[in-house]
Simulated scan of single mutants.
Amino acid sequence: MSTTDRRTLIVDAAIDLIATQGLRALTHRALDTALDLPTGSASYYFRTKRALIEAIVDRITTRSREDFTAAQLTPTDPIDPDTTAAGIAVWLDRLLTDRRNHLITRHALTLDLLSDPDLHPRLARSLFSTERARNLFDAMGIRDPATAAADFIALLEGAIFDRFAGSRASLAAGTPESIRQLTNLVTICFRGVMP
């Protein structure tokens, strides 16, 4: 196994460990045990816990960008808000289905890193792109696309949290009901800012 593959394996295991056992469970020894690696393997690749957490932030960010690109959410010209809302809802539902552990870990780390001037902003921007949202609202002809984008990202953050840890956590992702709920939410947001 290459060094890059081994590092990715360790980071993915760290994400799963935090998501299932909490941030306090994250230790190099716990990763060695979870992956059945010789003692000291995780610390060989990530000398400090800080280095491991930086790698987790990078992994979540990279996967988010890759998933967004793979979803092919390029707006049509002219923008059809209903079609765009449905596409975003499917993407969000896939995020809840395929990357639940990333979401849980991201939230745990976001709170833990509130006072970290480097990692907290990186983690806060790791899931959604304000620039892409701003471009979307600009293409929709919204008067203040920057404000609309910031509000939209805040809505998505809340909606995602609500679905994996909030009052709607019982609504199963990967179902038509899930996509319908997310589509309705995004559609309401779009209608609220449309000229």
Rank of each mutant, 00 (worst) to 15 (best):
T8Y: 05
T61K: 09
Q181D: 15
T74V: 15
R99N: 04
D98R: 07
V11I: 05
F128H: 10
T147A: 15
I60V: 12
D80N: 12
D98I: 09
D162S: 12
N101K: 07
S41D: 05
D77R: 06
G192D: 04
E177N: 05
G22M: 07
D5Y: 05
P145Y: 10
D77L: 12
H120N: 15
S126H: 09
L156F: 04
G40P: 11
A51K: 13
L109D: 00
T147N: 10
E66T: 13
L155Q: 12
D77C: 06
N101I: 02
I179M: 04
D32F: 05
H107S: 04
L114P: 05
R143F: 10
G192W: 10
F161N: 04
I56W: 07
L171P: 00
L95C: 13
N101R: 12
P38E: 08
A108I: 04
K49W: 10
F46G: 00
I56F: 04
R65V: 15
A70G: 01
L182K: 06
A70P: 00
D67R: 13
H107A: 02
R143I: 12
T20F: 02
T62F: 15
A146T: 15
G174K: 06
S129C: 09
F164D: 01
A55H: 03
R134K: 13
I88V: 11
F161V: 06
G40Q: 10
I142Y: 13
S64Y: 11
G192H: 08
D12R: 15
L96H: 02
L171Q: 02
T76F: 09
T105E: 00
G87M: 08
A19Q: 03
D36W: 03
A154W: 07
P81I: 04
L35Q: 03
G158K: 05
A169E: 07
G192F: 08
D67Q: 12
T3G: 14
